[in-house]
Nucleic acid binder design. Structure first.
Length: 271
DNA sequence: AGATGTCCCTGGAAGC
DNA sequence: TGCTTCCAGGGACATC
């Protein structure tokens, strides 16, 4: 389940190596979440200049196109010149003179979309509504608090929506709220400024820590297959329903918010 | 416009 | 053992 840290670690793992590579051919497997939106042959001969990230999207900048790559929940990328033969879950390959970039995605929630540039309407539809990058300077506590004050929905769901801050997925939302001592069901607009500041700090800390651990996490992920490396993050509440809170010993509770599981400690997160 | 519900997909776990 | 059911997840889209 790649969240922002995994996407960023993936980006760092091949961005330098693929920069300057010239595309030979494109191989498509089963349909992904959205159609590519362009003739794959159009990519032939183009050079990959850089790999950026916006939220959980990787942006491959080519000569005259941008590839938006989303890993969905089961996707992973490999870039090498001697990959094993394509398997049934390998749904996209960009073959270049420096190696093959391959998307492996059993559940096919991922996507590869080709647009001429980021001003393109399709790119805007996907990226235009995204909130701030949590690991960049623009994400500050005061602005975060101001944004929260405009929202009446439960704070957990506001975080997940991604239009205030991106990259806080289901796991890190529960973890950050635990770190900040905030109950996931509290209305966003009822969070005081100091508590919003604590939540802001928790989001930055949990994501930074995950990026730092990401290297080992991802290696395990791709070799172990299946069980993710989140165990290494030593979740405080996520996935621990009924188990004792690591801080106070109270049983961790699980609820559903918007069809998603939320975990919290009823004692440490009273309001 | 904001909030909420639905759906996409598939492997693994749990239940019968 | 083998079937069925449920669940996980991000995000677009429809509906209120």
């Amino acid at each position: 389940m790649p969240e922002l840290p995994e996407v960023e670690v993936t980006r760092r793992s091949f961005a330098q190596r693929i920069a300057g590579a010239r595309v030979g051919s494109v191989v498509m497997g089963k349909p992904l979440r959205w159609p590519l939106g362009a003739d794959p042959a159009l990519l032939h001969g183009q050079v990959v200049h850089r790999v950026d990230r916006r939220g959980k999207y990787l942006l491959l900048q080519l000569d005259a196109a941008v590839l938006l790559v989303h890993l969905g929940m089961s996707g992973s990328l490999q870039f090498a010149d001697d990959l094993p033969p394509r398997g049934p879950h390998d749904h996209f390959e960009l073959r270049t003179d420096r190696g093959v970039l391959r998307l492996h995605d059993p559940r096919r929630f991922g996507a590869v979309v080709c647009v001429p540039d980021l001003a393109d309407a399709r790119a805007q539809k996907l990226l235009g509504g995204l909130g701030l990058e949590p690991l960049e300077a623009g994400f500050d506590a005061a602005g975060f608090h101001r944004a929260l004050r405009q929202r009446r929905a439960a704070i957990k769901q506001v975080l997940l929506a991604g239009d205030i801050v991106v990259g806080v997925g289901n796991i890190y939302a529960s973890e950050a709220l635990f770190m900040a001592g905030i109950r996931p069901t509290v209305r966003a607009d009822r969070i005081s400024r100091p508590r919003a500041a604590r939540l802001h700090g928790a989001i930055v800390e949990v994501l930074n820590k995950a990026v730092a651990l990401g290297g080992s996490t991802l290696r395990d992920f791709s070799s172990a297959e299946g069980q993710s490396g989140y165990f290494q993050l030593d979740a405080q509440v996520y996935g621990r329903a009924g188990e004792p809170c690591r801080v106070c010993g109270t049983a961790v509770r699980q609820i559903r918010q918007g069809q998603r599981s939320t975990f919290f400690c009823p004692a440490c997160q009273k309001s």
